[in-house]
């Protein structure tokens, strides 16, 4: 399956989705002008991956900041992952960033996927 690899910019996150190496990560800042358009390739990738996933999928979110339009799309990404058995969300937040910790907790309450919380 093709690797999705997007370099991060000042308003979009770095994204690596690599089935072969078992790396699934969204990190950095997410405040694109058009969040739906930006996240569409991610949703497409996950849809294809769901057809033949690895036995376990540790999906990493390591976000420094995201805007509200991105939060809706992050929920869409999580909802797409919900149907993939063996998925765990690794939710990273900066140790003094309570808002990012709380955001992760809220997402974990909205989908049926186990979350692990880690600081960086």
């Amino acid at each position: 399956m093709e690797i999705l690899n997007l370099e991060g910019t000042e308003d979009t996150p770095k994204i690596i989705l690599d089935k072969g190496n078992g790396i699934y990560e969204i990190s950095g800042r997410s405040l694109p002008e058009d969040s739906a358009e930006f996240y569409q390739p991610v949703l497409d990738w996950i849809e294809e991956y769901a057809g033949g996933p690895n036995p376990s999928t540790e999906f990493v979110f390591k976000l420094e900041y995201f805007n509200t339009a991105s939060s809706k799309l992050i929920l869409d990404v999580l909802s797409a992952l919900e149907d993939i058995d063996g998925t765990t969300i690794m939710w990273y937040f900066h140790e003094d960033d309570e808002d990012m910790e709380e955001a992760g907790e809220e997402f974990s309450e909205l989908v049926e996927i186990p979350f692990e919380f880690k600081t960086y």
Binding site: D34, S71, K72, E109, L110
Partner: peptide, 26 residues
């Protein structure tokens, strides 16, 4: 505010203008 945020994010669709309707709450 937390409940309202969760309520909106569950039910919202991104508008033509690209907003999620969550800005003021956030």
């Amino acid at each position: 505010l937390k409940s309202l945020y969760k309520e909106i994010i569950k039910n919202t669709e991104i508008s033509d203008k690209g907003g999620a309707g969550l800005g003021f709450v956030d």
